[in-house]
């Protein structure tokens, strides 16, 4: 109740609040200040406030850019901007939408948007082509190497070729083969799945328990023989299953590392978004 009454009082104050700070020009100035202070959320809100009464291409673009800087890609996509080529930041805004779709892994929508907006002839054509090539690298289907590397200059070509080769030959391990290896020689499937330490440990444990079982049966210690025999069997079966699982984990790791490396590379390249200096 106390808060509601304070709120009511605040709203009455907000009416009295001076128009001096809330004229469109002052709102824009304040929003620019917030933008340069990296307070993008408030900057976006103030830009929206400005746009309710006024129109300005730079403000529209800075508004979209603020959402992008906060990684609020859905807001970037939902932001309605003029589809007219007269809009000064038309290409830049469309490119921001493309990057947002890419970063949301919405590749089908990315294709549709890329086909619709037609960046051909625009200043960001090469940048969008580069991004399109990365969508191919991120998906299951892939085109020819020449097509993938075509928009990149010499400095980037080698890296992109390496990405392409990793995509084409991912060095996966077969879970079936890993299980077969481990059923023949305990631990060898783990070594095959790149788990050398686990492989050696599995080999030694299974070997030692098998020997202990054999040794105890030989000495007519039946209880201990069964006990160690059971443990050896448990380790043997577990190791076969573990080897197949290790191969699957290895494959997931290959896929994850590949996508992660692409993300790191693109983050370093800022997703080919041009530098905008609105603060100096």
């Amino acid at each position: 109740m106390k808060i509601i009454s304070i709120l009511f009082f605040c709203y009455s104050l907000s009416f009295a609040q001076s128009q001096l700070f809330n004229s469109p020009q002052e709102v824009k100035k304040f929003a620019d200040y917030l933008y340069c202070e990296f307070d993008y959320l408030r900057a976006a809100e103030e830009y929206q406030k400005f746009l309710r009464t006024d129109k300005n291409d730079t403000v529209i673009f800075k508004s979209v850019l603020s959402y992008y800087m906060m990684d609020r890609f859905s807001d970037v996509l939902n932001f309605s901007v003029s589809s007219s080529r007269n809009f000064v930041f038309y290409d830049d805004t469309q490119f921001l939408k493309l990057i947002s779709l890419f970063r949301l892994n919405m590749f089908n929508e990315f294709d549709t948007t890329a086909a619709l907006i037609k960046m051909i002839g625009s200043k960001l054509e090469t940048n969008s082509e580069k991004l399109i090539r990365f969508t191919f690298l991120m998906r299951d289907s892939i085109s020819s190497k020449g097509f993938i590397v075509s928009p990149f200059d010499e400095t980037e070509k080698t890296t992109i070729e390496k990405f392409y080769d990793r995509k084409q030959n991912p060095h996966y391990k077969s879970p079936l083969l890993a299980a077969v290896f481990s059923s023949i020689i305990p631990g060898s499937g783990k070594v095959y799945a790149d788990k050398l330490g686990d492989g050696i440990f599995a080999f030694l444990t299974t070997g030692v328990f098998t020997f202990l079982a054999y040794d105890n049966f030989k000495a007519d210690h039946k209880f201990r023989g069964w006990l160690f025999g059971g443990l050896a069997g448990l380790f043997y079966a577990g190791n076969i299953y573990g080897s197949a699982a290790a191969a699957q984990i290895f494959n997931a790791g290959v896929q994850f590392n590949f996508q992660n490396d692409i993300q790191i590379y693109l983050t370093k390249k800022k997703h080919y978004l041009p530098e905008y200096d609105f603060c100096n």
Binding site: L13, S18, L20
Partner: peptide, 19 residues
Amino acid sequence: FSQTALQQQHDYAICLYNS
């Protein structure tokens, strides 16, 4: 007027904080 405006702005902000 400017002084009043700043004071009003201050009061409004305080009010929001209190609520």
